Amino acid sequence: DTLVEWCVNRGYGGLENLSAIPGAAGAAPVQNIGAYGTEVKDVIEKVMAVSVTDGRIKEFSARDCRFGYRDSVFKNEEKGKWLITEVWFRLTTRPVFELGYSGLKDEAERLGGVTLRNIRQAVINIRGRKLPDPASTGNAGSFFKNPVLTNEAAELIRNKYPGVTLYPDPSGGVKVSAGWLIEQCGWKGRRIGDSGVWEKQALVLVNYGRATGREILELSEMISKSVYEKFGITLGREVEIVE
């Protein structure tokens, strides 16, 4: 978030929708982090990395990174092989704002209008209302990816569940809200011991105190099982599991 703040304060657009995401800039390409209609791949020019085995330096173009939905080459065939040292961003002083996320434009308007600073603050405000503060409640942000369905499968679920949250995916398919699926299965706000599902956002699993990593993982598996049994949809994890 320090990088996003620095850019916004200097009038550089492109990263403002990624405000308030914790972590280091060097980790952003690995996950292809995204929020509120923006993915970091949209503004990455290249990534510089050092081999962990022989110390050689390699440049990865945006194409080389093979970015996908919360995915990149660094999570697949190049996983564990490189230490990212630089990320080059392509920003602009004439940004075209991404305002497709529900409520984002209205929040910016309430702050005085659609500007870089107001969009950043709008994102911070919305995140603050929906997501737990990791400084006080342990969490890894969104635990699950939004599944991408074929158009035919999306139409079937829309007919059966008219209230389902669907939106187009760049791949040509249709994303279904994982949070909506989880909520429909009764998990939102549910707690098992010290592990639980955040009461304001069903995508976020939280540690209320002394839950172990295994307990959080077991909770995620129970959630995935119930979603599959109800909808026939498999939830993919957004987080990386470290054994």
Rank of each mutant, 00 (worst) to 15 (best):
L111I: 10
R120L: 11
W180I: 05
G100N: 11
L104A: 04
G163R: 08
E155A: 15
V96K: 14
W187Y: 02
E199D: 14
T93V: 12
V114K: 09
I124W: 07
D194P: 04
N118E: 02
A108R: 00
Q121T: 08
P134L: 08
P95F: 11
L104H: 04
S142G: 01
R127H: 05
L104T: 02
L156E: 15
R190E: 07
N151G: 15
A153R: 15
G100H: 03
N159L: 11
D133Y: 10
I192Q: 09
E155T: 13
F97Q: 13
T165V: 15
L104K: 03
E109W: 10
K188M: 05
V114N: 12
A140I: 06
P168Y: 13
D194S: 08
A122L: 12
G186Y: 04
T137D: 06
L181V: 03
V197A: 09
I182R: 03
A135L: 10
I192P: 03
N159Q: 15
R94H: 15
G179Y: 00
R129C: 04
T137G: 05
V176L: 14
P168I: 14
G128T: 10
G172R: 12
T165G: 02
S136N: 06
V164H: 11
K130N: 00
S136G: 03
G100V: 04
R117G: 06
L131Q: 13
E152S: 12
I119R: 00
D106P: 06
K145W: 08
T137A: 06
A135N: 13
G173D: 02
Y101M: 08
L156F: 05
A108Q: 00
R117T: 08
P168L: 13
V197S: 07
K130W: 01
R127I: 04
S136D: 06
T93W: 05
V148N: 14
S177K: 01
V96Y: 08
G173K: 00
S136V: 13
V176K: 03
S171W: 14
R110T: 09
A154S: 15
W198L: 07
T137C: 13
L116S: 02
G172Q: 08
I192A: 06
R117L: 10
S142I: 00
S177T: 02
G186R: 05
S177D: 02
L156G: 07
T115G: 09
T93Q: 15
V176M: 13
Q184C: 01
L166N: 02
E183N: 10
E98Q: 15
W198P: 06
R117V: 07
P134M: 08
Q184G: 00
K160R: 15
G193Q: 09
G173T: 01
Q184E: 06
V197D: 09
Y161K: 03
C185A: 03
A135C: 05
F143C: 10
V164L: 09
D194C: 05
L156D: 12
P170G: 15
G193R: 08
G128C: 09
C185K: 01
L116V: 02
L181S: 02
